[in-house]
Amino acid sequence: MDVLIHAFVGLHIIGIAALLGGFMTQMKAMGKGEARMVPAMLHGALTMLVTGVALVGLNQADGNTVNTVKIGVKLALLIVILGLVYVKRDDEKVPAAVFGTVGALTTANIFVAVLWT
């Protein structure tokens, strides 16, 4: 079971890398007001959602305790991120405030995962 959990953690990290990487590639365009939600951001957020839910289930099935408050905060952040990316995915130009919010919430999600013990 540990190998499966670690595999899903790896996939979860790949999802966040896609989301944050997509954001980083558009930062220069954000400065010009031409940023857009790239497909990698949507796919990364969806990957994070699916693998996160799987990780909670696998950890509970393995008898590990899960911090439900932490998971709830991470899920809430991810739902807002996913909503913003999904709604704005077809727009040619996304307002800098909306785009910056996605980056800030993604970074906050990373820090919640790493620092909240």
Rank of each mutant, 00 (worst) to 15 (best):
G10T: 11
G44Y: 14
I14V: 15
G10W: 04
P39Q: 03
F23S: 00
A17Q: 02
K32V: 05
L49S: 06
E34T: 14
L42K: 03
M48I: 11
M48T: 11
M24D: 09
K32W: 04
G21E: 02
L19F: 11
V38K: 06
M24H: 09
A35S: 15
I5E: 12
A17T: 15
L11Q: 03
Q26Y: 09
G21S: 08
E34M: 13
K28F: 01
L11A: 14
K28I: 06
I14M: 13
L20T: 15
M27H: 06
A29F: 03
V9P: 03
I13F: 14
M37P: 07
V50H: 09
L20D: 01
F8G: 01
M41T: 07
A7N: 06
M41V: 05
T51N: 06
M24Y: 05
H43Q: 07
A35K: 01
M41Q: 08
L46P: 00
L20R: 03
V38Q: 07
V9H: 12
L49D: 04
G22I: 00
V9F: 11
M41F: 07
T47S: 09
G22M: 06
M48P: 02
K28H: 11
G33C: 12
M41I: 07
I14P: 08
H12G: 13
R36Q: 04
L42C: 03
L20A: 08
T25K: 14
L20P: 02
E34Y: 12
A18P: 09
G22D: 11
M27W: 15
H43I: 15
G15V: 06
V50P: 10
H6I: 09
I16R: 01
K32F: 07
A40Q: 12
H43S: 07
L46Y: 14
H43W: 15
F8D: 02
G21Q: 06
R36F: 05
G10R: 02
M41H: 04
K28D: 12
M30W: 00
G33Y: 10
L11S: 08
T47I: 15
M41G: 04
